[in-house]
Computed example of a mutant assay.
Amino acid sequence: MKVTYLVYEVSAAAGGKLRVATKEEWNRIMEQNRDLPREMRRFFIQDCIDDCGNLDCMYIETTKAEYDKWHSAHQVRYKKRKDAEGIVTLSGDISTQTEDGTLLDTMHDGINWEELMIDCIRMKELREALSTWRSWGVEMLDLYMAGMKMKASSVLSEKWKRRKNKALCQELR
């Protein structure tokens, strides 16, 4: 494994250029960083490249803003990798050594997805048809679906009577 340390000649804020540092210089910078408050520390990002089985790691000095962006993305990748531990992904067309054939043939969740989708499409079409038929058609359907069949007509007549009265009062003014 090859490790390279790139540090600023002057400082990141002063627009210094990056140069290669020795291992001893790197250790000294890290030791000094431990004693400094966070706002005065030097920040580094790590970039590792697998070059035909040889790992090439670079520690690159950067600004705090760039470090924060890198660290955030690095944490997301780390958490995803940790969450995926112990999870095995299988292809749905893998053979199952049963007479059913594939894994997809043996898995069943008890839901008829095709029928469910057709029901959703039909309900959407019904709502569209009711809204073009009468302005209160969709409201009536919603009341029926909520189990308020007996109260639906009285609720709607009261609501629409109030609307009609408001419109009439505004007209007379």
Rank of each mutant, 00 (worst) to 15 (best):
Y8H: 09
C52G: 04
D142P: 06
V10R: 03
P37C: 04
L156N: 05
L55Q: 12
K79W: 03
Q46V: 10
W133M: 13
K159V: 00
G137E: 07
R19M: 13
D105M: 10
A129G: 10
Q97C: 12
W160A: 04
H74E: 10
R38W: 13
A146N: 08
A129C: 09
R77F: 00
G137I: 04
K64A: 09
T4D: 08
P37K: 07
M140D: 11
D35Y: 03
P37R: 08
W133E: 15
E25W: 08
F44A: 01
Y59F: 15
S91Y: 05
E115F: 14
H71V: 06
M1E: 02
E61Q: 05
L18S: 03
K124A: 15
R162H: 06
I94Q: 07
E158I: 12
G53F: 01
K80D: 02
L130F: 03
L172I: 14
Y78E: 14
F43S: 02
K2H: 05
W136R: 15
M150H: 00
L103M: 06
S153E: 15
T62W: 01
K149Q: 09
K164V: 00
D35Q: 14
R163I: 03
Q46D: 06
Q32P: 00
Q75H: 08
G101V: 03
K23R: 13
L55E: 14
A13S: 13
K161F: 13
S154N: 08
L90G: 06
D100H: 14
L104C: 12
A146P: 02
V88D: 09
A65Y: 09
W70Y: 11
V7P: 01
D68I: 09
A13T: 10
H71K: 12
E9C: 05
C169D: 12
L143P: 01
L6K: 13
L18Q: 05
M58R: 09
K69G: 04
K80N: 10
E25N: 05
Q170E: 15
T132H: 08
S135T: 09
H108C: 08
G101F: 02
W113K: 09
Y5C: 04
R162M: 08
Y5A: 05
T89V: 10
S135C: 11
W26T: 01
R162S: 08
V3C: 02
R173Q: 14
K159G: 01
M58T: 07
A84G: 07
V88G: 00
Y144Q: 13
K159A: 02
K166A: 03
L36Q: 06
G53H: 02
M58G: 00
T4H: 12
C120K: 15
K17I: 13
H108I: 00
E139W: 04
K164E: 12
N33T: 05
G137M: 07
R163S: 06
N165W: 11
M123E: 15
S91H: 10
